[in-house]
Every structure is written in C-alpha cells, then in structure tokens.
Design a protein around this nucleic acid. Structure first.
Lengths: 269, 269
DNA sequence: AACAATGGTTCGTTATGTGAACCACACTTA
DNA sequence: TAAGTGTGGTTCACATAACGAACCATTGTT
C-alpha cells in the first residue's frame, strides 16, 4: 500500500457522526503509529484536505474538498440527476433510498435519502459498499464489468451469519440477480436490514451504479417488496436517463413480469 | 515534500476548463516522471479521488470527493451561508464576486459568482489565492493570524509588474488594508483586474475568510469603487453572521467613514 | 505529586518511492 | 510498407523518504 493511499484512507474516517477527530483517536481507528498518522495529517493539511480546529486541535475535513467536488460534479453530473428521483423513491416506499456509483472496482455511496414516514430507519453512512454483501453490490456484480467478481472474491468479509463468504455462494446470489433484474440482500451486511436494488446505466451504455431501498426487517412484507421493486424500476429508468443512458432491453425484459404499478399503489403508506 | 502531498497536488490541476487529463499531459503539467505520476494516479484511483474515462483513458476527478465535500459542508457550513449574499453582491456590482476561506496559511476559493451584466468578466478559476498579490490575500494578511506574513514572504512570486515582491512593499500594502478596512489589488495578480475585499469572521471570533469583487480594469471608476465597497460591507456582515460571527468593532469603525448606501445606489447599473 | 491523557518531535533502520529505459499500441507521414 | 511520434503502462537498480519506538511538553484528574 502506497503512502499516499494510507494518508488518504484517513479521510474516510470522518463522518457526520464523527466530524472532528483527535490525533490519538485517529491512530487507534486506523491502527497506525502516532508519528505516521501525524505526518499523513500534515500532508493532508498542506493541500487543504483536512484542517485543525484551532480550539480543540482536533482534525476535520478541509475546504479544498469543496472545490474538487464541485469540479467533479460539473464534469460528470451524478448527484444533480439522482437527487429528486431518490427522494421520490424514499417517500413512495417509506424507507431509506440510496444511490451508489461504481468507480474502478469500488461502489461509492453518492446519495442517501431517508423517508420521514417511520421513526426507525435504515441509515446509510458508509462511504463505500462491499460488493458481496449488499443489494447494490450484487447488482454491480451481476450487471457491471466481469472483473468485479474477482475483486469481490478477494475481500469476502463476513458481516453477519447470512453474508455469502464463499465464491460459490456469491456466484449463486449473483445468478439470482441476473435472473430477476434486482439486487437483493437480506441482512447480509447489517442484520435486520432488507434491501433491493436496480442497476443504473449511463451515456457509455455501461453499468454506472445502482439505486437501492433499504428497509428495516421488521416492517418487511411481500406487499412492500412488490412496491419497492415497482418504484425501483421507474427510479432506475429516470436516473439512467438523467445520466445520459437507458436500460438495456434484456433488463427491461426481466422486469416486465412484475405486476403493474397501479396494482401495488395501495400498498404504499 | 511528502509523497502523499505530491500525489494530492495532482488533483489541483483538474478544473472546469480541463476536467479530463491524460497521463502524459499531466506529467508535463507537474514536471514529474511518468512512472511516478502514474503511481500517484493509481493511489488516487484506489481511494476514488480520480477515475479513468474508460473511452479515452484520461483521468478525471472521482466520486469519493462528493461524499467528503458533503461531510465537510455539514461539519463546517460555509458554502450554504455564502451563496446567496455572494450572488447578491455580484448582481449589485455587476462584477465577479468570490469568497475564499483561510485554512492554515492558504486561502482556498470557496465560491465564485459572475454577474451577467457585462459580457467581459473576471473569472476566478484558481483553487487557491496567493496571499501577497490578491485583495483577498492582503485582507488575510491584515486581519488574519500573524504567522501568515512569514508564509507570504516565503512565496513572493511575481505575477505582473505591479506585484509586490519585497517584504517591505508587501508590508506597506498590508498597512494600507489595516487603515482602510478593505483589501485592494490593482492588477497585482492578473493585469487588467482591479479588486477589493472585506474580511469575514466566524464563530471563533477569528478571521475566517474574505469576500471580494474583481472587476475588469477598463470599467473601473471611482463611483464603482464606492459602490463595491458599500456592498462589500453589507455582504461581509451577512456572511460573517451566517458563519456564526460578527465583525470586530475596530473594522466597523474603519468602514464608518464611507458615504451611506443610498448615496451610491444610483451608480449601480 | 503522581498519573494518564493529549498533541507533537527525534533518529536510526529499512521499506518505499523514484526515474531512465523499456514495451505495446495507435495514428500520421513519406 | 516502414519509419516516426504520440500515447498509456511496466521494469529494476538505486537512493530517498517513510516508519515507529522512544521521547518531550502540556493539560487535566486523582
């Protein structure tokens, strides 16, 4: 692992839940030496990726990120085209919806949107999603580039006791996604969370990401599943369109077996 | 310079004008070896800071930046509190307005807003601003931490023939800013650009950044100067307020000598 | 006053980054 | 066809810069 990678890895530990982190605390999080972590933070600070709270001396994300994110979004608009369809999806299903984009062999969380319908909600607060243990990841394996499967099998971490941790189990799960057109994960990443996902295609005609709904297990019913899948289809179509792409005919074909939208309308809260 | 810093420095070369850059081109830009640059790009790619356009194999900024920028803005809201006052400022003056934030000893461009009034406009497209050659930078030197002056004198790059390149000339410019309460640069960074700036203070009570108006030199008149300064004052107050701070009394005092707003209202287009 | 945190620094060892030279490929040009 | 020029990507001997145990200075607690 390069030194630059190690330094940048530090950034992933800053989150809404923990926006400011002290040196010692960060060392414990990344299990690295204090001197090393300090030098990394210095490097990040010189380029404006982190800054120090002058009061507490704790570190937080820096202003240079805003610039770069702005340029990225202007270059490859993703957020803008996903925001509205996603909130619609969350509201329609009453559950948490999120969109992830594939870059290389990693799925990065782009947006997450919770529905205010219930007070217990699924929270998506990880910067990237494991390929083998999430509905989104399985979707990527099923419809993304073939190289993903190798990458996935190289990191078959067990999160719960239903996480597929053998290449064979993973291949079965992926085959199922290819058959149905939906990614599906039942407590494989976090127990008590059931989620479904649909692929998104961009202007290159390739798999670009996936949209998913994560619902708390205790609320899950066959009716809800049908509602989620129906809404996922239209959301996937809209976002793909906004990203300059369309869904391949074979995927539309897989989905055509579902009951029509009107039949499930009354199952939504 | 650490290896991590060198890798991260690559990111600053991506801009709206040049959102995708090939390996060879980037090597020329940073004057570094191809192998080195390639490894740096690899590192950046593994953490999602850049990605490759699969068609052209050129590199562009990656999706991980969006996540981080979102967290940064949620942690320390700056953009949200500056956006509206800034567009108001641009519209009121008919020129380009921008806001920069100080992090360590660097001023990062946060937002830039052009007015549609004229078809020739000043464009602010650099990620960070030199301390010694911009109105914003002089403002930081005048009202920011004392350590800035040393940092500035260590990088007295000459941009035009009016750029102050001796510590003495710089000290005189800063003294002038301390006397008037406004940063001022007349073609010191880019010829033909005249700009004025006012400091912004945040909840810590410290200098947090500056707001500035950059106008094309051929349009500059004493009337416009007065209009710009008047609008800068109110914009600086509003943004400081939105960032949880207020302007120190001694700066308000410096500004109180200006004619009132109503007297200059009719000079705005 | 002893203790346990914190952020930050030093220095000898060694892992890691470096760049000249290289390859494979694509597109012009003669 | 063959040489020329550009690209992205790879190799390997070498030297630089990253590493981490041990250290210091502060702060707040017991």
């Amino acid at each position: 692992m390069s030194s630059a990678t190690k330094a940048l890895e530090l950034l992933t530990h800053f989150s809404l839940a923990q926006p400011e982190i002290g040196l010692s605390q960060l060392c414990r999080m990344v299990k690295r030496d204090k001197a090393t972590t300090y030098r990394h933070l210095q490097a990040l600070e010189t380029v404006g990726f982190v800054e120090q709270n002058p009061m507490t001396r704790h570190y937080r994300l820096g202003p240079a990120l805003l610039q770069l994110a702005q340029t990225r979004e202007a270059t490859v608009p993703r957020k803008a085209g996903a925001q509205l369809p996603l909130t619609d999806l969350a509201n329609a299903t009453g559950e948490t919806a999120h969109v992830a984009v594939l870059s290389g062999t990693t799925l990065y969380t782009l947006l997450s949107c919770e529905s205010p319908t219930y007070s217990t909600r699924a929270i998506i607060d990880v910067p990237s999603l494991p390929l083998h243990a999430t509905a989104t990841g399985l979707c990527a394996l099923a419809f993304g580039p073939d190289t993903l499967f190798d990458a996935a099998t190289r990191a078959l971490e067990r999160f719960t006791d239903t996480t597929p941790i053998t290449p064979e189990a993973l291949a079965r799960a992926v085959a199922c996604v290819r058959d149905t057109g939906f990614g599906h994960s039942q407590g494989c990443f976090e127990a008590e969370i059931v989620s479904f996902s649909a692929p998104i295609f961009d202007y290159t005609g390739q798999f670009a990401g996936a949209v998913a709904v994560a619902c708390v297990g205790s609320r899950f019913t066959p009716d809800l599943e049908l509602a989620i899948k129906t809404h996922l289809i239209s959301t996937s179509r809209v976002i793909s369109h906004n990203w300059g792409g369309t869904l391949p005919a074979h995927i539309e074909g897989l989905w055509s077996g579902l009951p029509s939208y009107s039949e499930v309308l009354d199952t939504t809260p």
